[in-house]
Design a protein around this nucleic acid. Structure first.
Length: 293
DNA sequence: ACGTTTTCCTGAGCGC
DNA sequence: TGCGCTCAGGAAAACG
């Protein structure tokens, strides 16, 4: 389950191993892996041939490689996606979905491997109305907290304006991108905030503190060289990262809170789970709807 | 227009 | 041994 730091590691790997190279051919082995390329697998393959990759870019968990001529190859790893550079002739992975070969085959081929096929590749033109070059399909994705241009004031204003709850807001890609279930729980634990706290109750310093914790937990992951929760994630060099040792909240049901020792809790939340410390992160007092007599 | 729910997909893990 | 069930996850479509 790659989160933003893992995706950043993949970006760096793509930049080093695919940037500047020219595509010899592309082979789609599973149509679902290119389902977001609406013109279809054959079109995807045809339009990649002969194109040269520019420097790899990222926003949130989306990756893209600009192509000479204007479009970009957009990638999302989903839950189980991997991008790997493999020597030509290496046995196909069981869940190999797309293979991209280059005009300099000695430097290896690019493979998209994805067991659960939530991820995928597609080609898109750049958005016309943005100051920075970004594929049109990503124009609605907010900047991520590691982006120097992330607008903290606008994020705080959005929290104040909205009537939603904290974790929902953290996972809302139009407000802030790149925060997944794991790091949302980690950052909320660090900030001692409950996941169902109404966003409008945060004052500015509290919002900034929460953003600081999000960045801290992501930087910590990056410092470990890109991390992951299980072996499904592999970076472009085929090395798997692991951040499990550093998790303070996610997956720690019934284990003692590392701050106060209280057993951590897990609660069902939006068809998944939220982990929190009931003492450090007390639930918000239910808003009184109508004063009962 | 907004917030919420459902959907997509596969394999690991579990109870029986 | 194997069946059927639950769970995991991001993001977009569908729903209210």
């Amino acid at each position: 389950m790659p989160e933003l730091p893992e995706v950043e590691v993949v970006r760096r790997g793509l930049e080093r191993w695919a940037g500047g190279r020219t595509v010899a051919g592309a082979q789609v082995l599973h149509p679902r892996a290119v389902r977001r390329h609406v013109a279809g697998a054959a079109d995807f393959e045809a339009r990649l041939r002969g194109r040269r990759f520019g420097p790899a870019r990222r926003r949130g968990k989306y990756l893209w490689l600009p192509l000479d001529g204007g479009d970009s190859l957009v990638a999302h790893l989903g839950m189980s996606g991997q991008l790997r550079i493999q020597p030509a002739g290496t046995a196909d992975e069981k869940h190999l979905r797309v293979r991209i070969t280059f005009e300099d085959p000695a430097a290896g081929e690019l493979r998209f491997v994805d067991q659960r096929t939530f991820g995928g590749l597609s080609l898109h033109p750049d958005a016309a109305d943005t100051d920075c070059a970004i594929p049109d399909v990503l124009a609605h994705i907010a900047r991520d907290p590691l982006d120097p241009a992330f607008d903290e004031a606008a994020f705080h204003a959005a929290l104040r304006r909205s009537r939603t709850t904290l974790k929902r807001a953290l996972l809302d890609q139009s407000l802030i991108s790149g925060v997944g279930n794991i790091y949302a729980d980690e950052a909320l634990w660090r900030a001692k905030l409950h996941y169902e706290r109404p966003t409008a109750t945060l004052n500015r310093p509290r919002t900034l503190e929460l953003l600081g914790h999000i960045r801290d937990v992501m930087h910590a992951a990056l410092a470990e060289g890109g991390t992951s929760f299980d072996s499904l994630y592999v970076n472009v060099n085929g090395e798997s990262g692991y951040f499990g040792r550093s998790l303070d909240a996610y997956g720690r049901e019934d284990e003692p809170c590392r701050r106060c020792g209280t057993p951590m809790r897990r609660r069902p939340w939006m068809n998944r789970s939220s982990y929190y410390c009931p003492r450090c992160q007390p639930p918000p007092r239910p808003r009184r709807q109508k004063p009962k007599k």
